[in-house]
């Protein structure tokens, strides 16, 4: 019987490669379009709401999260993701998708232990790493500020 190392070489040789050009093109195009939609939302809010830039920015993010959640709910986002790859993962809509999709998936196990408990199965690491790193940044800035 062949040993693991030479088998790994055969596998590597035979494994089909990702269609680089197609996936990169799709990620670039769809990612760019999602950002343009975000910019449009921002511009509309900035025009018609009497609010400072921070609030408009936050509202834009919330609106995009709503779009991502809704498209996930009606079953469109996974189809976009099939073609777009990172183009629909990296924008904030992808973050919404990663929260809504497990919540929908585990709805059958009940609202408390299914939907609510599993909601952060994919997005949990994002929130944990984000909050922890922001605390780290805050503490570093505080210490530097006190020392200075």
């Amino acid at each position: 019987m062949i040993d693991a190392k030479s088998y790994a070489e055969i596998v590597k040789e035979a494994t089909p490669k990702t269609q680089e050009a197609r996936t990169l093109f799709a990620a670039f195009g769809i990612g760019g379009v999602i950002c343009m939609i975000g910019q449009a939302v921002f511009d509309v809010y900035a025009q018609f709401l009497n609010a400072d830039e921070k609030t408009v920015s936050a509202l834009t993010g919330m609106t995009m999260i709503f779009f991502g959640a809704l498209l996930t709910g009606v079953g469109v986002y996974d189809k976009i993701g099939y073609y777009a790859g990172a183009g629909s993962i990296v924008p904030i809509t992808g973050f919404a998708n990663s929260i809504v999709s497990p919540a929908m998936e585990f709805h059958n196990e009940g609202i408390v232990f299914g939907l609510m408990a599993r909601m952060f199965g994919v997005a949990g690491p994002i929130i944990v790493s984000g909050v922890c790193s922001s605390v780290a940044v805050g503490i570093i800035y505080y210490i530097v500020g006190v020392a200075a």
């Binding site: 709910g73 009606v74 079953g75 609510m116 909601m119």
Partner: peptide, 26 residues
Amino acid sequence: YGLRAVAGGLTAAIVFGFVIALLFRS
């Protein structure tokens, strides 16, 4: 203040996530 700054986005994600998941199934 880090979490406070993203409170809007996180709230939206959780609330919309909850409502949408109540309305739709996989």
